[in-house]
């Protein structure tokens, strides 16, 4: 950049007073700041003993769940919108004809590779029936890759586990909130 460019707005460095030149404010401010922080409350969360506080579990993007409707059936209609929306291609659905009269299809199998997932929440956005949701479960661990591929039963069990603490958002679509 040219220093004689007329569009540059030059700011004069504020001149130090006598005390500033004697390093006094610097000395005092530096030490008082560190001393204050030395005794101030700590922000670290001691994780396994202490759970991190999730501000709003309804919008947190953790482990997925497959919601059940009022009769306990899976809500999913196997429309493949979530699998289409997924940028990581981690959702695999096999849809078949539904045994129930209120819908045409339902998922025979519904698997999510939790290791591939980037937890962007696009599936939740795409779902027309609020069947797939991201919960606030944040410590997802496993001992093998196979274990981390969640099938329909596992995803429904996540719903059973979290339905009381995180109700389904939309009442219009059969939600409980």
């Amino acid at each position: 950049m040219r220093t004689d460019d007329p569009s540059i707005r030059w700011i004069e460095e504020p001149s130090l007073g006598l005390s500033g030149r004697m390093f006094l404010p610097l000395f005092v401010q530096g030490l008082t700041t560190t001393a204050r922080h030395l005794f101030s409350p700590k922000v670290t969360v001691s994780f396994p003993e202490e759970r991190p506080k999730v501000d709003n579990p309804l919008i947190y993007r953790g482990v997925h769940r497959l919601n059940r409707d009022a009769e306990g059936r899976v809500k999913c209609v196997a429309c493949f919108l979530c699998a289409t929306a997924c940028p990581a291609h981690c959702i695999d659905i096999v849809g078949t004809e539904s045994p129930w009269p209120d819908r045409e299809k339902y998922p025979a199998s519904f698997t999510i590779d939790e290791l591939r997932c980037i937890y962007c929440g696009m599936c939740e956005e795409a779902c027309p029936v609020d069947a797939i949701e991201l919960t606030s479960l944040l410590d997802l661990t496993g001992r093998s890759r196979e274990e981390m591929i969640f099938d329909k039963e596992k995803l429904l069990s996540v719903y059973d586990q979290t339905k009381d603490t995180e109700p389904m958002p939309s009442a219009r679509l059969g939600g409980t909130l």
Binding site: T34, H37, L38, S40, K42, V43, T44, S46
Partner: peptide, 13 residues
Amino acid sequence: KMAAWVQDRRGPD
């Protein structure tokens, strides 16, 4: 520990 406390952390514990 001091470094952690000054930065509002807990340090190795």
